[in-house]
Design a protein around this nucleic acid. Structure first.
Length: 218
DNA sequence: TAGTAACT
DNA sequence: CGGC
């Protein structure tokens, strides 16, 4: 994608691409806010720095993570959970910017989930080679609320699996500005990210930034 | 088990 | 694969 000067500029408003009932890719949905979103990520991660979490099995995740909002997702040797404070600093996670909340609500509504009010935004930073193996989002209080995932920077191949880990995963390209929303019958689908290819993007210093919005409590 | 090794 |  090093040649794709205009890869993040869709020629026309894009039709929603349904992966299955309940799950949709909104191409370019976050493009108008991309610069502001990335500026906010810089401000947030100046307070809650990116770090590589450890899985319960003791392995270092290749994705660097931070959080914004009342709750943040964390992993360590004792498990996965949401918590109100950053284990690295002991401070509350930085408050979620109104722009983030609004984008998540609008994307969820466009996907058929009106009234989404996220209380957690996991910020994932991917460098070339970074991956995220297939998993389910199962650490939230209930599964009535959708997941909203915003892609910024260099492209990735999203792995869209099934209800069981062994199900074959579909490979879906995600570019700067794309937003994936899944909920309802698709809420517990396995998903992940293939190892990132080398690429560059002017707005992210050659990285991919992913914002994943969830309602973790309530 | 949000990762890895150790296979085929 | 074994501890939440």
């Amino acid at each position: 994608m090093t040649l794709g000067l205009f890869d993040d500029l869709p020629a026309t408003p894009q039709a929603p691409e349904w992966l299955e009932p309940g799950a949709v890719v909104l191409r370019g949905f976050a493009l108008p806010q991309a610069i502001e979103l990335l500026q906010a990520v810089d401000a947030i991660t100046a307070q809650a720095p990116f770090r590589h979490l450890i899985t319960p099995g003791g392995q270092r995740m290749s994705v660097a993570m931070s959080n914004t909002g009342a709750l943040g997702w964390i992993s360590d040797r004792s498990g996965y959970r949401y918590g109100p404070t950053d284990p690295t600093t002991g401070l509350p996670w930085p408050p979620m910017p109104a722009l983030f909340r609004q984008l998540a609500r609008e994307a969820a509504e466009a996907a058929g989930y009106p009234g989404f009010v996220p209380d957690a935004c996991l910020i994932n930073r991917y460098a070339p080679g970074t991956r995220l193996s297939l998993h389910q989002d199962r650490d939230e209080g209930n599964y009535d609320h959708p997941i909203v995932s915003v892609s910024l920077g260099i492209p990735a191949i999203f792995l869209w699996g099934g209800a069981e880990r062994a199900d074959k995963a579909r490979r879906v390209g995600l570019w700067h500005g794309d937003v994936v929303v899944w909920g309802g019958p698709a809420r517990l689908r396995f998903h992940g990210v293939a190892p990132l290819a080398d690429a560059s993007h002017a707005m992210t210093s050659g990285l991919r930034i992913n914002l994943t919005f969830r309602k973790a409590s309530g």
